[in-house]
Amino acid sequence: MTTVTMTVNGAPVSHDVEDRTLLSSLLRDGLKLTGTHIGCDTSQCGACVVHVNGQAVKSCTMFAVEADGAEVSTIEGQANADGSLNVIQQAFQDHHGLQCGFCTPGMVMSTVSLLKDNPKPTETEVRAYLEGNFCRCTGYHNIVKAILAASGQDVSAE
């Protein structure tokens, strides 16, 4: 067992894990942060995307011990301080950017990264950025629309 010490959504945590434990497993099973979803477990689907030191990663394809000392943020850390939905989450709700919701945590975390690097992406850029996030319900249309709306762009004609 190895002790992993990191910051998760701003709070310091310390947890003993087997070396083979994935970051996704530590978050879900160890820290009970079950908002991070494991869809495929083969690094295809992106439901498990979290941020490690500010970068989007697939938490099912990183060992927990690799996050030792890191700042991790998950979907649980995305709401506003008063508990209301942040701009991206609210846009997903307003534009029906989800149906079953399974992929949504990863979609939101990827969107946070996208808009940090590219505050006004084009539709093509949004679709390209979501290459590693699968949704099997929506056909992506309303997800893309929600992201464009979250970036402050007019989507009334979409």
Binding site: G46, V57, K58, T61, M62, S110, S113, E131, G132, N133
Partner: peptide, 9 residues
Amino acid sequence: IGDPAVRNR
């Protein structure tokens, strides 16, 4: 290569 999250690792 891959997707953004893969490229970060």
